[in-house]
């Protein structure tokens, strides 16, 4: 099974964090940002999505025993000891 922890981490950030502008500058319907109103899924965090099974097709669980023999973490974007090398 393909795992995608990077997607979950990205959704947690892009949907909940980052600069938020004043509401009067963004498109709203009855005070609710329009894009958010129409993309209700986008308002939920990855955690909420997982909780309600929305993201099951995107982020699937992998049993612990499928990890690398030496405890390597195969399902992260950057693996152990490799942060500096991936720094760009």
């Amino acid at each position: 099974m393909k795992t995608d922890i990077g997607v979950a981490e990205l959704l947690d950030r892009a949907l909940q964090k980052g600069v938020i502008l004043n509401a009067d500058l963004v498109v709203t319907v009855a005070g609710v940002p329009l894009l958010a109103a129409n993309l209700r899924l986008a308002l939920a965090s990855a955690e909420t999505m997982l909780k309600y099974g929305v993201m099951q097709d995107l982020i699937v669980s992998k049993p612990l025993h499928e990890e690398g023999k030496n405890g390597e973490n195969k399902d992260c974007i950057i693996t152990k000891g490799a942060i500096a090398q991936h720094f760009c």
């Binding site: 600069v19 004043n22 009067d24 958010a36």
Partner: peptide, 23 residues
């Protein structure tokens, strides 16, 4: 970075780009 889904609107007789520049 901006939070995903930020749409700037024209409002108060000002265009979206004018509003954004003002902000």
């Amino acid at each position: 970075p901006l939070k995903f889904g930020t749409l700037i609107v024209g409002k108060g007789g000002r265009s979206a780009s004018e509003n954004l520049r003002g902000w």
